[in-house]
Structures are given as structure tokens and as C-alpha cells.
Amino acid sequence: MSVSITAATPAALAWLCWALLAAGCASSLPTRAEYQRIEEGTGAIVLLHFDLTVDGEPITLNARSALDGTVAALVTQFGEPVLQPESKFTETVRFFEAGEWRDGWVFCVLAPGTYYLEVSSGSGSLLSAPEHVINKYEFRVDVPLRSEVVYIGTLRSNVLTGKLLFGRSPAGFEAGSLQVMDDTAAASTLAAECFADLHPPTTSIMFRYEGGTREVRTPLEAIDTKR
């Protein structure tokens, strides 16, 4: 009988779920229920773009990118992963096509409000890691009311690798290499192709959370309360 010690946190479990989903079953475009939320104004498609290099070389992100530690993303509110009302412990960032981050684009469906996006890189089993790497960044994301598609920015960074026993593995983002870009034109092109029946994207570029109080807004709940 083997015994293991565990003290799982909701964040860890949600990340695990996301990683498992990323590994095998790629998600489809928004479901019928999600489209209904968008029509009702209680949800919006949030578009995020990754433009990464690894050791300076361009890469194609795919389902393995989360598992091998290249990059992972998690949306939180009040410090906990955002749980979709229809299914607990669901992941929040999805792919466009089977296992592929279509040119680095991913999306999720969120209600209007303020969220915090954790973007992480690096695997913990390296024999030696380069100096000056950063494993996690946090951004504030605002999803405006009455938006059907929201583009929150393009994350550009270089991931540095470290040594494994055999080969190399991502160690983290190169310090100082991360930039949040505004590529609304590309977001509009993607949205026109994938979400032709929805309004063109609204741009609401995320910004770095630098510490202090995390302000949270949930405008729909505020409206409900005032009724």
C-alpha cells in the first residue's frame, strides 16, 4: 500500500484540469449555451494572443505547450480560478482547433467584469536553469459590458530553457522580455473568420498587476442588486 501526502489547492486542481484538457481533448468553438450567454449579454468571448519564442527561436504553440511548461494561463477572480456556472473545475482558456493554439490565439468566455490572468512558464525539474527568468506574471483584465468579443492583447516574450538530464526544458520567461502588444487588426481578422455572426471585437488591453489590492468589478451583479 502506497501512501502519498497531498495538500491540493483549488488553483492547483484547476490548473491540472486545464493541463489535462489541453493534453487530449481540444475544445470546440463556443457552445450553444455560451452563444446564448453572449446574446443575453452575460458573457463575452475573450481573445488572447501569445507570440512567443523559445531561446530566441519562433515556435508553434500546441496542446503540449502547457504540459512541457512553455506557457500556461489561468483566469482568476478573488484569487480563485473562475468557475463557469455550468461546470465546476472547468478550464477557462481554450483552443480554436484540435490541440492547436491557432497561431498562438486562445479564448475563453467570461461575464463582464474584472479578472486577473496568471500567465506562467517553466518546469520544476531542471538540473540547471538560466538566471534572470520569471515564472509568473499577473495581469488585470477588464471585460466591458455589452461586448460580444473582447481582445485583451498579445503577449510577446522569450522563454529560456534549462538543462534536463537528457535535453532541455522551459525554465521561464526571460526577464525584461515580456511585452503586452495591441494587435487589434489581427484580432479583428480572426474574429471575422471565427465569429462572423458576432460584433467585431472590442479592444480592452490587459495591464500588469503590480501588487496591492486587487479590485474586482462584477457589473451584472451590481445591476441585479439595484433592481
Partner: peptide, 14 residues
Amino acid sequence: GPPPYYWVDFQTMI
């Protein structure tokens, strides 16, 4: 100290 979270819509420090 500053609260980790502040729910703006309900003016609530957490």
C-alpha cells in the same frame, strides 16, 4: 494593511 481584494460594486474590503 491594504485588503487583498476589494469588490468595487459592493464596496466591500476582503
